[in-house]
Amino acid sequence: MNDFLAALADPNLPFFRYAVLTGIFASIPFGMIGTYVVVRRISYIAGAISHCILGGVGAGLYLQNALGITWFGPLHGAIAVALLASVILAMVSMHAKQREDSVIGALWSVGMAAGLIFIAKTPGYSDPMSYLFGNILLITRSDFFFVLALDVLVIGVIGYFYNTFLALCFDEEYARLRGIRTHLIYLLLLCLVAMTIVLLVRVVGIVMVIALLTLPAAIAGNFARNILQMMVLSTIFCILFIVFGLGVSYNLDLPSGPVIIIFAAVAYLAAILGMRVLGKN
């Protein structure tokens, strides 16, 4: 633990401070959006969006490096693909609900396949693994500001639509009867999920985004009495996993992302078992 604190204070290790700070601020969208992902049961949809992003990243790299279109980079590709995937998934849930899981599977695999083909055809070397698991220690100052901007966006939109999102997640049919245009609000929620995933994939990678969207919120769901409490609790859990995971990975010289995921998963298991033993649920 002392090593960890020393590393935080070490002026020669600015990347470490960025990693911890970014992790803490990324926990806010993880906790808030993750709460909706868990209660609305759309973690597979979040999974499809995040894996699709590899297609957008690959297309961005290809356009930039192979075709010389400099203004279009991996981030633009990722945003375009993530929003496109949200629109497709919202339309499917509207018009062909019974085929939803097939479409999720298709988007998931086609996005990744397209990404790998693009990356293979892009001159120079880029390692797809770095997009899958990310590297929180490579975070730059600009990544940190992207995460701050995402915090403002997520808190602003959820603050405004809190009751509307609650109605959508709890009882969509009833929300519709109270005059809420549920398809539009669902699309808004999916786009918010997509933006969160895009910006956080830069930070922690595709696989870890899903772990940190679902596990802290799933744990918090065992204790929370309402959605707001669940958001606050899952943000706190997420901060703990990231900070603790970073500390341990630094001390034991292990890759940080996977250590954070394992911590979150162990905590989830402990929470479920704990609730069983205590006889709740």
């Binding site: 209660v39 049961r41 405004y160 639509f161 009751n163 509307t164 609650l166 109605a167 997640c169 709890f170 009882d171 009833y174 929300a175 109270r178 005059g179 809420i180 245009r181 539009l184 609000i185 769901g221 929370a224 009495r225 309402n226 959605i227 409490q229 669940m230 649920n281």
Partner: peptide, 27 residues
Amino acid sequence: KYDPQFPISVLDVVMMGRLAGTLRNRF
């Protein structure tokens, strides 16, 4: 059909009866 794990109070469920449109829905 309700999710038995959804964190919501009786009061908040009844409050949904007062929703009246797409946007902000402050009570």
